[in-house]
Amino acid sequence: MSEKIVVGLDGSGSGARAVDYAKKLGALIGSCELILVYVVEWSPFSFQTPEENAERHKRRQEEIKQAMDRVVTPAVDGLKKEGFETRGVVRHGDVADTLERVAVEEKAVQIVVARASDTGFASRIFGSSTANLVMNASVPVTVVS
């Protein structure tokens, strides 16, 4: 039975670094599937206008398609060309919670993410997604610098 590694993508250079590291891990493990996860940041407790609510389903579909087309599919295709067993997933939610949930659902042995590039006031107060993931995940997490 092949092992599974969940890799966090964010469409930037840090996501690509996480994929590079996961490739090395995958090669070492041998039979290993890399699950590339892109999380669209979303909170069920945000406030919206009635019109935004009415269009929310449509927007969600568009967000998923955009993330798939621009970030996930190119990364998955690249890995497949290199001979890796891989697939991509796009989910909405809190980044740390969602990566952890996908890892638990998939029975992954590890989550690989790159150090977050987010700085600023909010991340200082609430912590970055990476820090939250490291503190709360029930699955081993590797943070690539």
Binding site: W42, N53, R56
Partner: peptide, 21 residues
């Protein structure tokens, strides 16, 4: 709420929107 439905309008959002009216 089913986590797979994340990204759709939540019950909280519908309530908050209606309340603001």
């Amino acid at each position: 709420s089913d986590p797979d439905d994340a990204g759709e309008v939540s019950h909280f959002q519908a309530l908050a929107t209606a309340l603001s009216g």
